[in-house]
Amino acid sequence: MEAVVNVLTNPYYIQVVTMMGIFLIAALGLHVITGVTGQFSFGHAAFLSIGAYCSALMTIHLHTPFILNMLAGGLMAALWGVLLGFPSLRLTGDYLGITTLGFGEIVRVVFINMKITGGAGGLGGIPRETNIVIVYIVVALTIWGLYRIQNSRFGRALAAIREDEIAAESMGINPLLYKIKGFALGTFFAGISGSLFAHMMQYLNPADFGFARSFEILNYVVLGGLGSIPGAILGTAVLSLAPEFLRFVQEYRMLIYGALMVLMMIFRPHGLLGGIDFARLYKKIKNKRKSVENKNTESI
């Protein structure tokens, strides 16, 4: 019992689990864009940084309450998502991917050159507002919200676009409009995640939001299982905790990570839980139990 309490109050574990929650929100945002709508985004970290800087600057200069700043960070990221989405979501597949990648790099370079963000020296002096409770309340709200959206008319329209854009269009769905809405939703969550990150680290540096970070979040979503909320959760949990566990192999860590990415794709190209949502996951477990029970009765 004492051991359990120790683990629960250990600041290191709390730190690691909080960070995981923050990145989970970002991954869920990307899940909407890539998993549900089927659009490539290789610049997700840029939206994190927009949300992070926006909310941090508001906290420092305007002293507005944190909840407000967090929402503002999310909305600012979504605004830029729409601004980028309008022209570029007409592009498809890889072209869209590479445009978002380019946008990500441009945002990073702009932050390096801006005075108010502290440039390359980074932005310090952000008060700590984030804690594990807030993060997991936001995580719960995000999952609940996404679950509701995915099973709504809007969510089904997004999924229809992913499955076949032309067929969706002939069913009366305006793909561009829906894609932009989906993109805005995804980038909103990225912005929220960035705001939480800023008020957790208390120090921001543009170097933390390069394309390596974007691909890391993409990995969470893809390896976990595209189009699946449990998949995004599993992917984020495994991959964001892996570096902590693999610290003992130090320099071989990235070697294993790279090889694992290749192997995962070859043996499980849809990720660990590709296309599985909560309802199906539940059903699957239930069915399995049933079939086991059936087998048992048969044997009797």
Partner: peptide, 16 residues
């Protein structure tokens, strides 16, 4: 590993 968000985790670990 010369990575600043990981540095936060490592610092916390040293403190614990």
């Amino acid at each position: 590993g010369s990575n600043s968000s990981e540095a936060a985790n490592v610092t916390q670990k040293l403190i614990t």
